[in-house]
Simulated scan of single mutants.
Amino acid sequence: MGRVVVGAGLIVALLLASPGLAAEPVDAARSVIGRQIEAFLNDDAATAYSFASPQIKGLFPSQALFFEMVKRGYRPVYRPGNFAFGRSKIEGSTVVQEVLISGPDGKDWTALYSLTLQPDGSYKINGVQMLQQAPGPEI
């Protein structure tokens, strides 16, 4: 978690679109991500933390620690200018979701979210890998 990799080419290798994806897990994953980003925008640590997987909660055993980690290491997720969902992939009980983010500094990022299916049927965020995008041509 927290590793930044520069380059858009890596995304193609990691995340291939699959036309036959079941919509339900992808829709659930997108809902969780959107609700967590909304919680970050509202400085609602309790709600943001509620979407973290048990594994993440084991690494950050309090809402305060989790929230501080996100503020410091995931600024584009904490304060996105804009965001949109990209491609998604289902691997067993895991959904990998691409989120295209314009950070607060105007730089473009791709966040690769990994969500795992929980025993209660919900999806929880189990990690986010941030990929900084190369600047595009000026328009």
Rank of each mutant, 00 (worst) to 15 (best):
A28T: 01
P80A: 05
L65Y: 05
P61W: 05
S50L: 14
G58F: 10
R72M: 01
Q97C: 13
D108I: 05
L117K: 15
A23T: 02
Q97T: 07
D44A: 11
I56H: 04
Q129A: 10
V77F: 04
S18E: 11
T116H: 04
I125R: 01
P119S: 08
W109R: 06
A8K: 12
T47W: 02
A45N: 03
D108G: 13
M69G: 08
P104I: 09
Y78A: 09
R35T: 13
P104N: 11
V12W: 06
S88P: 05
Q36I: 04
S93I: 02
R79L: 14
G103A: 05
P25L: 04
F85N: 00
Y49S: 07
F40H: 01
I56L: 06
S50K: 02
K71G: 08
V6Y: 13
S18T: 14
R72T: 01
A111N: 14
G81S: 12
S88F: 07
A84K: 14
L14G: 11
P76M: 07
S102A: 15
V5S: 10
V4T: 15
G127N: 11
G34S: 06
I37N: 03
S88L: 13
G34Y: 00
P104T: 07
A111E: 13
L15E: 03
M130R: 00
E91V: 06
K57G: 01
R30V: 01
Y78L: 02
S62E: 10
Q36C: 11
L16Q: 08
A17S: 04
L65E: 14
D44Q: 03
K71Q: 13
R30P: 05
D44E: 08
P135M: 04
I101S: 12
V4H: 15
M1F: 09
Y123N: 00
V128P: 00
Y78M: 09
V99A: 11
I125G: 02
I101W: 09
L65I: 15
G34E: 02
R75W: 01
L41K: 14
E38G: 09
Y78K: 01
S53N: 14
D27V: 04
P119K: 07
K89Q: 12
G9M: 14
P54L: 05
E138F: 10
L10I: 11
V95I: 06
P54K: 07
Q97F: 08
E68H: 07
R3D: 08
P119M: 11
E38D: 13
G9D: 12
T47Q: 03
K107D: 11
P80C: 04
P135H: 14
R72K: 10
P54F: 01
I37L: 15
G9Y: 04
V12T: 11
Q129E: 08
R3W: 05
Q63N: 06
K71N: 03
A22G: 10
S62F: 11
N82A: 12
L131F: 14
I90L: 14
E138L: 15
R72E: 08
G81E: 09
R87T: 10
A22Y: 09
I11E: 12
G81Y: 04
V99C: 05
G121H: 12
S62M: 13
G2M: 09
